[in-house]
Design a binder for these strands. Sequence first.
DNA 1: CATGAATGAGGGTTCATTCAT
DNA 2: AATGAATGAACCCTCATTCAT
Lengths: 193, 193, 193, 193
Amino acid sequence: MARPKSDDKRNALLLAAEQVFAERGLAAAPTSAISRQAGVAEGTLFTYFRTKDDLVNALYRSIKLELADALMAHFPRQGPVRDRLEYLWNAFVDWGVANPQRLNVLDQLSVADIVTDESKAVGYEPFAEIEALAQHSIRTEILQAYPCEFIAASMKALAETTMGFMNAYPAESGLYRKIGFDVFWRGVARKAD
Amino acid sequence: MARPKSDDKRNALLLAAEQVFAERGLAAAPTSAISRQAGVAEGTLFTYFRTKDDLVNALYRSIKLELADALMAHFPRQGPVRDRLEYLWNAFVDWGVANPQRLNVLDQLSVADIVTDESKAVGYEPFAEIEALAQHSIRTEILQAYPCEFIAASMKALAETTMGFMNAYPAESGLYRKIGFDVFWRGVARKAD
Amino acid sequence: MARPKSDDKRNALLLAAEQVFAERGLAAAPTSAISRQAGVAEGTLFTYFRTKDDLVNALYRSIKLELADALMAHFPRQGPVRDRLEYLWNAFVDWGVANPQRLNVLDQLSVADIVTDESKAVGYEPFAEIEALAQHSIRTEILQAYPCEFIAASMKALAETTMGFMNAYPAESGLYRKIGFDVFWRGVARKAD
Amino acid sequence: MARPKSDDKRNALLLAAEQVFAERGLAAAPTSAISRQAGVAEGTLFTYFRTKDDLVNALYRSIKLELADALMAHFPRQGPVRDRLEYLWNAFVDWGVANPQRLNVLDQLSVADIVTDESKAVGYEPFAEIEALAQHSIRTEILQAYPCEFIAASMKALAETTMGFMNAYPAESGLYRKIGFDVFWRGVARKAD
DNA sequence: CATGAATGAGGGTTCATTCAT
DNA sequence: AATGAATGAACCCTCATTCAT
């Protein structure tokens, strides 16, 4: 096979898309700017992604997967629920603070209707284990008897809020990380310990 | 610049913009579609708003003001903090559930970078009184000793999460409204009562 | 109504399309070249014709109508069949020789699959009277008992062949016009007179 | 330039081009579709034909040659003029009816301006013998004293018209073949026999 | 020679904005 | 002030052709 499609180039395009979306917003990001940023010809983008929408969906999945990896790679399968949730919390906000651009783009993509339901499903899958943990904790009466997607969504919402403050006030970063989790835990736990 | 003749037309344009943004997404909403929806000529839009960005910012402010009115118009200046916060909470989510389109557009606008910092500042202003309430409550040790913008932001994040569930499961609407507030209150209060 | 859509501009666009198609071929005729030739902005073309295909179909109909007018406007409703057919023959080839470009484009359009069946039907309508004449002449045994569309098609084919020679040898133009008709008439008449 | 390795591949490309042109029209036929249809890589097409135009011209010549072969291979060098012309007529329309796709493409190519005058000259050459026959017949007063290219052109025009009807009404195919020739013969012969 | 990724000029079309009416 | 035709820069994508493998 002559000159195989290069993973490097594909990744360069995804990264470039991320940067351009972060800078100019998903709406106003021409594919030409993405190609230029990636250092390839305009047409090349379309040998790696059939359409701009395809690129957007691929980027969404790729960020979601990376995030999943950050959360789940060393996730402790044992120990008190509180500790395990705090681990997730910290992994999440640390990732978000380390990759503010990526997080910003993920937020944009999450509301954009270019991202298909299928992509959303794929992106959600790795987080199923968290849901399982939550479910178990509800049954064992550690967490409140709320629908567990609601608990997960609350966690996400509070974590993103927290990240906003961590980014805005880097000096207080550690403090916000902690009080953010405290708010979440007290909010959803049966007994605050 | 003398105010253009008809406030009706201006409002019709804002409303039309909201509808079109809700249906097609902020990105894919041509001004021509907005004019058509408003029942005016394409050019007319530009006598009421100098540019499309102006229209978007005006819409953002108008929604924010309406929301502020919904929250603050009958806000009880007396009574226990918990009750007063719950009043706000309920007013917020009720508004969101009554105006899902408007809420959706507000979400879109909040991440769009067309909305200027100035608009965001203007949109925040009416909520200052809430902040004052929070500040007072912190000093009187009713709420946790967190930065009060953090508490406000947490409230907003949880309320929006809650609204999402209320819209998704209308039958459980009342339930979510309640448990949403409980999560928030336990999260930020010194003593859950 | 502000600045009404101008028939002049519409016609200029049709004429420009004809010229550009004649020069560069239907396939390789960018709309930008048509706009330029018509002396309008690129976008203007699309306020008069929704798509390029629309323009092509409109051009086809317009040429067909013009041709129909050239043939039928003074068509003699009386007299010997031979004379009446010769009138048509002459009107056709005279028009074709006077408008070689237009004829050329009509030929291109006739095989192009951009032209819809509906357009073809509309374009055929004015020629129905000729068919009626042919049918009558077959019944009265002036013409051979062939399907009359076949006679019409033969006439067209021979006329276009004839026009080719008239254009190629303008000095002999009159001669070809005559012998062309003779070939046709002897071919389809019961008795050559 | 040494002939490239495989004549098979060259022919496969010509055949593929014919199929793709027939299906999608000359205008909308990308070289990539032709390569795919031929089962070769995109680049390979260009080792057999320097440009797309070259391919088109080669296809034109190839079809013309094949047609010439169909007409001339068993052309009777003896016998009455009428019989010999009828032989040609039948050979022509039979070929056209047996290869409708090929005929269709030939029609498209004949009006396309991609085909060079040189190609047209080459394509005409094998038909010279017919012209010679016509010329002889005119001198011996069997045919009318018309320019013999005009007679040839008329024959071609009527034959193509005839083929159209043969393809459209296969059940009447034999009938059209016959009356088509009759129209032609009466049109150009001095004495219809 | 065969392959198919890479290229970038153009293609048709959209759209925010202007301006003649 | 209101209208909507006019404008032309940009957009996404295609495709003939080149060239590294």
